[in-house]
């Protein structure tokens, strides 16, 4: 089981993603509704993988990743972004930010876990 930190402001999406990730049976999931919350919980949870929404009120996904990277132990933790803005230019920008991949919303809950594992192993 891999420890996965999921940051997402939309409660419904959090719930769907949680069920989807648990369904795959490969992750121990910790969810945070905001970047601030994630920064607070991450040191203790010690995630092995980060799954971040991009557009969030307050701290955005990319900013959250930047701040998480400052936490000891998370400097190189694999990160995956999730976004509903699927413009190729935006996706490229996110990938340039040391993200493994970008999952486009709406995602397929059945294959989400496999998609993440594939990115990790790719």
């Amino acid at each position: 089981m891999m420890r996965l930190l999921h940051v997402e402001d939309d409660e419904d999406i959090r719930e769907v993603a949680k069920m989807a990730l648990e369904l795959s049976g490969q992750f121990e999931v910790m969810q945070c509704p905001s970047g601030e919350d994630a920064l607070e919980k991450a040191p203790q949870f010690k995630p092995e993988i980060l799954l971040l929404d991009v557009m969030m009120p307050g701290m955005s996904g990319p900013t959250t990743l930047q701040k998480l990277r400052e936490i000891k132990g998370l400097e190189t933790t694999p990160a995956i972004f999730m976004t509903a803005r699927a413009q190729p230019a935006e996706v490229e920008e996110l990938k340039a930010m040391s993200a493994l991949t970008v999952v486009v919303k709406p995602f397929d809950p059945i294959t989400l876990g496999d998609q993440i594992m594939a990115a990790l192993n790719g």
């Binding site: 939309d10 419904d12 999406i13 719930e15 769907v16 993603a17 069920m19 989807a20 369904l23 509903a84 919303k105 709406p106 995602f107 397929d108 809950p109 059945i110």
Partner: peptide
Amino acid sequence: RTPMTSIKGAMGL
């Protein structure tokens, strides 16, 4: 897309 993510996701599950 945000609400569609929840709708599709929930139904898919």
